[in-house]
Design a binder for these strands. Structure first.
Lengths: 119, 119
DNA sequence: CCAATAGTTCGATAATAATGGAACTATTGA
DNA sequence: TCAATAGTTCCATTATTATCGAACTATTGG
């Protein structure tokens, strides 16, 4: 039963976290996890090859954002919200809120009238 | 009198902002500006060649974080705090707070007993 | 035990970004 | 007008990241 290394909270750095979240795909993973937790990797692939997805998850783990637990044949991912919040209060929340702001603005631009945009 | 292009707030993206701040040098520039505003580039160079500094300022401007005004022979930089906050409330503040947390933790590690660490 | 599933690791290639020297621009003070 | 100052722009080089196929690992169900 292989498990993963997760850095402890004291080791996390702001730049590493910001870098991890500065990639649109990784940010979308984190957003999905914030909405539904835990989740395996598969539903978050978005058409990418598995090796690429695996790489991005590794970056997120190294930054301390995501914890991956091996559960049977799937790897369950969750955000390290409490820990992150203990170390950098409000940081993750502010970033997620900013994403929400941004995407609702885009929706408005793309949906001028009464359409609704949930896919 | 040459001036700079600054993207308008509506154009700013979260990933661009996070990427801009994921570089330690750029983050230190932003931190300095948050403490003292406006400032020319020169005092923030930190021993780097001017072309490099100029590049990093361009990234910060493109991300919408910094505004540069030409004032005589110097270029005065300031944070676009209000605008940024209007677009992504609390984002910049949370990131700056996280930096403060991080650096105070490092100070504690480096200063075990009663020393004080202001240089 | 075998096949299927879910993901990782490796290795090569391509894309992005950082670095720094040299030449250039704009502004001011002498 | 000339020299000095403060940055920028251009360019080449290097370093970091991302991408993706192929081979590999661990776990489970049959």
């Amino acid at each position: 039963m292989k498990q993963y290394d997760h850095p402890c909270v004291a080791e996390l750095t702001v730049t590493q976290i910001l870098h991890a979240l500065s990639d649109p795909f990784r940010l979308s993973i984190v957003r999905s996890l914030a909405a539904l937790q835990p989740q395996p990797c598969a539903p978050l692939q978005g058409g990418r090859p598995k090796s690429s997805v695996s790489h991005h998850f590794a970056v997120l783990r190294a930054a301390g954002l995501v914890r991956t637990e091996v559960v049977g044949v799937t790897h369950m991912n969750s955000l390290r919200e409490q820990e992150l919040n203990a170390r950098f209060p409000g940081l993750l929340a502010a970033i997620l809120a900013a994403c929400a702001t941004e995407s609702s603005a885009t929706e408005q631009a793309a949906t001028p009238s009464g359409e609704h945009s949930l896919p």
